[in-house]
């Protein structure tokens, strides 16, 4: 039966979850409650939904840290295998940047920290050294590479925790609330890095509560609710559905609210599609003025 599914699988689909159930030990209610979703190759995907809606649990299922109680995950059309060798190759391809860098960084110095992944994948010491300095340069953190990890600022720790995963050259990068507890400067830096990563063709999935950023950034939004996927769609489709937003306690992105308001006031045409960014909205307005 699995064979059949492999043949049928759309080659665009990188990761697929089918009816996942997962309950943490000692908990009554399931963290994942029949979650099904698909993730397409090369997309920018935002996972949204309130705390405890199952985003993090799902992420940990994606690289085999948690094994769902029932349901199946497919990577490149193949169902997940949980043998040691299969897990190893899965974890190389599916990289997770954890929310709190203090829970991810274990080594005493930045270089050692970043070298952990490639050494586990069997890279030689020389190759690892080369990769470490390349990733340090790429993320512009070479100046703090000699510092002990505890002496870094929160933002620097975040960058190091991204470097940790990036160096393993994953096919999909999962970031769990990458901007949590970051100042505006580092938030911007992290978002820019994520943009560069996507340009390299790496699929990026990010959990976030920032509706404005999700709206501008994402190709697709997965909306989690009580351990299930409530809806999967483009940002403008999802954020225009007010009932849905109400149900999941999400605010509408500012840009979309202004756009709808301008439309209802007759200041721009009702036929226009929702603007992707602020520049597009501005051009709508100047078009209107010209006509």
């Amino acid at each position: 039966m699995n064979q059949k599914k492999t043949l049928k699988e759309n080659p665009e689909i990188l990761l697929r979850a089918e009816n996942l159930y997962y309950t943490y030990e000692g908990e009554d209610s399931p963290a994942l409650n029949g979650l099904s979703l698909t993730i397409k190759r090369g997309k920018k995907i935002a996972c949204m939904g309130s705390n405890g809606s199952g985003k993090t649990t799902f992420f940990l299922c994606c690289n085999g840290i948690h094994r769902p109680d029932s349901g199946t995950l497919y990577y490149n059309g193949k169902p997940f295998g949980y043998a040691k060798k299969e897990l190893l190759s899965l974890r190389q391809k599916v990289g997770i940047v954890f929310q709190d860098p203090d829970r991810q960084l274990f080594a005493a110095s930045v270089k050692q920290e970043i070298s952990f992944g490639p050494l586990n994948l069997g890279c030689s010491e020389e190759e690892t050294r080369r990769k470490v300095s390349a990733v340090l340069k790429e993320l512009d953190i070479t100046p703090c590479s000699h510092k002990p990890t505890y002496a870094l600022s929160g933002g620097q720790k975040k960058l190091v925790s991204i470097a940790d995963i990036l160096i393993m050259e994953p096919e999909i990068l999962i970031l769990d609330e990458p901007a949590a507890a970051l100042d505006p400067f580092y938030t911007e830096t992290v978002y820019k890095i994520i943009d560069r990563i996507t340009e390299q063709g790496i699929t990026v999935m990010m959990a976030t509560h920032d509706v404005n950023h999700a709206y501008l950034w994402a190709d697709e939004i997965l909306l989690f609710h009580e351990g299930r996927q409530l809806k999967q769609g483009t940002p403008d489709e999802l954020f225009s559905d007010e009932l849905l937003l109400k149900k999941t306690h999400l605010a509408q992105p500012m840009l979309l609210t202004i756009f709808h308001h301008l439309q209802s006031e007759g200041m721009i045409s009702k036929k226009l599609r929702a603007p992707k960014n602020i520049e597009e909205l501005k051009s709508y307005l100047s078009q209107h003025k010209d006509s």
Binding site: I65, F116, L119, N120
Partner: peptide
């Protein structure tokens, strides 16, 4: 584990 930990903490 997410970074392929295999029982020894190898670092440079």
């Amino acid at each position: 584990e997410a970074r392929c930990y295999n029982g020894t903490l190898q670092v440079l």
